[in-house]
Design a protein around this nucleic acid. Structure first.
Lengths: 216, 216
DNA sequence: TTAATTTTAGAACAAATGTACTAATTGATT
DNA sequence: AATCAATTAGTACATTTGTTCTAAAATTAA
């Protein structure tokens, strides 16, 4: 592992543990085991490190999104695996969502990137809703604009379950991601058709070691 | 207005605008128009100011919660007014939710207070669900534990719509709160009975100047 | 091997911040 | 009016932090 990679990796762990505000070039350098002068040689400051880590995450998510092809058949089980993968990925970069406001304030460049990413996720969610309806798994809107509301719920829960969990989650750590995937999934369930509900009940929910896919 | 009150008020506005990390005893004192020595005489540091502001919010919310009496009849319109009031209140203290993680890290005392507050809100939500079912407005659970999922969704959306709005909301400011109240409300809608849906459709949704109630 | 380039450690400096302290001023009480 | 407590402004100091600079060491290329 090169020094650059070691720095990024250590920074990610340190950010996750202590938050972005408490990590300085000096404390990070010490954790990596190099001088802070050396660290500044590779990355001028912590801001550019945060930016790089955000790009890492955004790229991984984007490639995940592109795995979903319009028109391709979907199952609720596939969606759950996609969701679990995304949540697990987000968990590795959880400092980004936890210190969301502060980071967006510090790094306007990321703000725009994030807006674009969220737009792509919105489109993906809309695609999913459309496909599920075509397969008669999802009921149609109860009122005009319900889909938009649902998608916003998905964005909020999908991004900020981490912050909420920080204070409220009390179960075992291994079950955390699966728990919040269930909370997320439950946004969709009341809108399932009879057929959709049957398909959902048929998914093995007790097994937490399901294979996961990254992205979306 | 006493100096103490002036400090708290200015701090709240400054926190909302620039985030807790950027506000120092000096910058705050300057904004209030007093010396930083004087400010430290009233409040040792910014931490105790944050704590005081949190208590202000928590207390207001708690009194709002107690307005709901178990067994009393509910309407979706009343719930919407309660929701709007709470969202408006939260908006005035939005820095607390935006810089949530950082604050919880800095002030462990608040963390415990917040856990307790969230428990009370959970109980309130459960009470509401129960009462709505008694009035045949809400369908029963699709699966055991759905209520818990729904309540967690309500907590997450109810707390973090502010953070999401920071980056994603693009409409006019006056409509912001009502928009997110709708997103919040939409969590419940798919579970309404026929009767419930009819009641909901009868609410005048276009008028944003509805009277609001604080709390919950 | 030699020369050039990259990487590294450490020193130095300015700016900002929390905290403590002093002295002056104000306001209330007797 | 005199006294005491509360309030205020301003100073001082130690720490931390970002940033820059220098020189040594390590690595690579010729």
């Amino acid at each position: 592992m090169t020094t650059k990679e070691k720095i990024l990796e250590t920074a990610r762990l340190l950010f996750n543990e202590n938050g972005v505000e408490t990590v300085t070039v000096r404390s990070l350098a010490q954790e990596v085991g190099i001088s802070h002068g050396n660290l500044c040689y590779h990355f001028a400051n912590t801001d550019v490190i945060i930016e790089r880590l955000y790009l890492q995450l955004a790229e991984t998510i984007s490639t995940g999104i592109n795995q979903l092809v319009p028109g391709e058949s979907l199952s609720l089980e596939l969606l759950r695996r996609l969701g679990t993968g995304t949540f697990a990925l987000l968990y590795e970069y959880r400092f980004l969502m936890r210190d969301f406001a502060g980071i967006m304030r510090r790094l306007p460049a990321i703000r725009e990137q994030h807006q674009a990413l969220m737009q792509r996720r919105r489109d993906t969610f809309r695609l999913i809703l459309h496909q599920l309806r075509k397969q008669d798994i999802l009921r149609s809107e109860l009122y005009p604009g319900q889909d938009s509301h649902l998608i916003e719920q998905m964005l909020i829960v999908g991004d900020f379950w981490l912050s909420s969990a920080d204070v409220l989650y009390e179960g075992p750590d291994e079950a955390k991601i699966n728990h919040y995937v269930s909370v997320f999934e439950a946004l969709l369930l009341p809108m399932l058709t009879e057929k959709g509900l049957q398909q959902w009940f048929a998914i093995p929910h007790s097994n937490p070691d399901r294979e996961t896919v990254r992205g979306v």
